[in-house]
């Protein structure tokens, strides 16, 4: 990938992350940490790409490990975040 183009993406993504968090109330810090933890679970996609082109048994073994860890990050991150956020509700009635 074009190095300079990537630098632009890095910069804009960093600002986006900063801006989103800067306005968050304290009560959401834990779910948000968990939610952002889920989002970097997208590493599973990278792991799949790496495993998808693995050739030697060693590469396959590391790739399997990477995909399993990435999938756990994504699935676990989603479940715990959803469970926490499902409890935030105003008093009924």
């Amino acid at each position: 990938m074009d190095g300079l183009l990537a630098l632009y993406i890095f910069m804009l993504a960093a600002f986006t992350g900063y801006e989103i968090i800067a306005k968050v109330p304290v009560i959401l810090h834990t779910p948000l940490m968990s939610g952002s933890n889920f989002i970097h679970g997208v590493v599973v996609v990278g792991a799949m790409i790496a495993l998808g082109s693995a050739e030697t048994p060693l590469e396959q073994a590391i790739g399997f490990f990477a995909v399993a860890l990435g999938a756990a990050n994504a699935a676990g991150g989603y479940v715990v975040t959803e469970r926490m956020l499902a409890m935030f509700k105003k008093k009924e009635g």
């Binding site: 993504a13 960093a14 992350g17 968090i21 952002s36 989002i39």
Partner: peptide, 11 residues
Amino acid sequence: LIIAGIVVGAA
């Protein structure tokens, strides 16, 4: 991956 990773890194 870059966007998701860096957004989380900054946040």
